[in-house]
Simulated assay, not measured.
Amino acid sequence: MSAPLGNQFWKARSSHGRDPIFATPDALWGACGEYFEWVDANPLFEARPFAYQGEVKVEQIERMRAMTISGLCIFLGIGRATWDGFGERDGYSEVTARAEAVIRTQKFEAAAADLLNPTIVARELGLADKAEVTGKAGAPLTSAVDELSKNDIARRVAFLLAQGLNSAAQ
């Protein structure tokens, strides 16, 4: 059964839409701090075998857990789009920038100390050693084949085939 025409039941609502998850930037920063503490308090574990006097034991070794934006979003119970939306709001943008800086710094420093895999962290942080190689006077690289005529290429292929036949005959 549908509502009668001209109804105004919507005016009876106490609020419109759901309440914001983090009503203030301070509430968001507090929740981010809880995530940072949770990461420190909940390391990952690696099973590593040890041998001593012929007896092999498997021990659990604590490994550092890397902070991530996606891990933060899961902890906060929000989606990545919601996190990005906070970054566009006044007051919240400083909080999101600060949280992202904390996460980036934690990963970078841990990778530099070899506590996290440096290759994976460098890839995620967009760090790379890049060298651009160019041809003469900054022109694009070309291969020697690009500069040969079809006739020259055919002559060189015939020469190589003849060499192959001569070596096979011997």
Results as ranks from 00 to 15, higher is better:
Arg13Glu: 02
Glu124Phe: 00
Ala47Ser: 09
Pro25Trp: 09
Ile103Tyr: 04
Gly138Phe: 01
Asn7Asp: 15
Ala122Lys: 10
Ser143Ala: 08
Thr82Asp: 08
Pro25Asp: 06
Thr68Cys: 03
Val133Glu: 10
Glu46Val: 05
Asn117Tyr: 04
Ala97Thr: 14
Val102Trp: 06
Asp129Cys: 03
Ser93Ile: 02
Asn166Phe: 09
Asp19Pro: 00
Lys136Ser: 14
Leu28Tyr: 07
Trp10Pro: 00
Lys107Asn: 14
Ser70Lys: 12
Trp10Ile: 13
Ala137Gln: 10
Lys136Ala: 13
Ala97Asp: 14
Arg65Ile: 03
Val56Asp: 10
Arg13Val: 02
Glu124Gln: 14
Pro4Arg: 09
Ser2Ala: 12
Glu34Arg: 13
Ala137Ile: 03
Phe9Met: 13
Thr142Val: 15
Gly85Trp: 02
Leu28Gln: 07
Arg156Ser: 05
Ala158Ser: 12
Ile120Trp: 01
Glu37Lys: 08
Glu132His: 13
Phe159Glu: 12
Asp152Ser: 13
Arg156Gln: 11
Asp84His: 13
Ser14Ile: 00
Ala168Lys: 15
Tyr52Ala: 14
Phe108Pro: 00
Pro118Leu: 07
Ile153Cys: 01
Trp10His: 13
Ile153Val: 14
Arg155Val: 10
Ile69Phe: 02
Met64Gln: 11
Val121Met: 00
Pro20Tyr: 02
Ala137Cys: 07
Trp38Gln: 01
Gly87Pro: 04
Ile69Glu: 11
Val39Asn: 02
Gln53Glu: 15
Lys11Tyr: 02
Ala169Ser: 15
Ala12Val: 02
Glu34Met: 09
Arg123Asp: 04
Ser14Leu: 05
Ala27Thr: 07
Ala51Ile: 15
Glu59Met: 09
Arg13Leu: 07
Phe45Tyr: 05
Glu132Leu: 15
Asp152Phe: 05
Asp19Tyr: 00
Lys130Asp: 04
Asp152Thr: 14
Thr134Leu: 10
Ala162Thr: 09
Ala111Leu: 05
Glu147Ala: 15
Thr68Tyr: 01
Arg63Ser: 01
Ala47Met: 02
Asp146Cys: 09
Ala144Asn: 14
Phe36Lys: 03
Trp38Tyr: 12
Ala41Ile: 07
Cys73Arg: 12
Trp83Val: 07
Arg123Ala: 04
Leu141Gln: 10
Thr82Asn: 07
Val145Asp: 12
Glu37Thr: 11
Asp19Ser: 05
Glu147Met: 15
Gln106Met: 06
Ala111Trp: 08
Arg104Phe: 07
Gly138Thr: 06
Val102Tyr: 04
Glu132Tyr: 02
Gly79Asn: 04
Ser14Thr: 06
Trp83Thr: 11
Gly79His: 06
Asn151Asp: 08
Glu124Gly: 00
Val56Gln: 15
Thr82Ile: 04
Arg104Ser: 05
Arg48Cys: 04
Arg18Glu: 03
Leu44Lys: 03
Thr142Gln: 11
Pro140Val: 06
Gly138Asn: 02
Ile69His: 00
Cys73Trp: 08
Gln53Thr: 09
Ser14Cys: 00
Phe36Glu: 05
Ile21Thr: 08
Leu141Val: 06
Ile74Pro: 00
Phe50Glu: 09
Thr82Arg: 07
Phe50Met: 11
Leu141Tyr: 02
Leu115Ala: 12
Leu5Met: 09
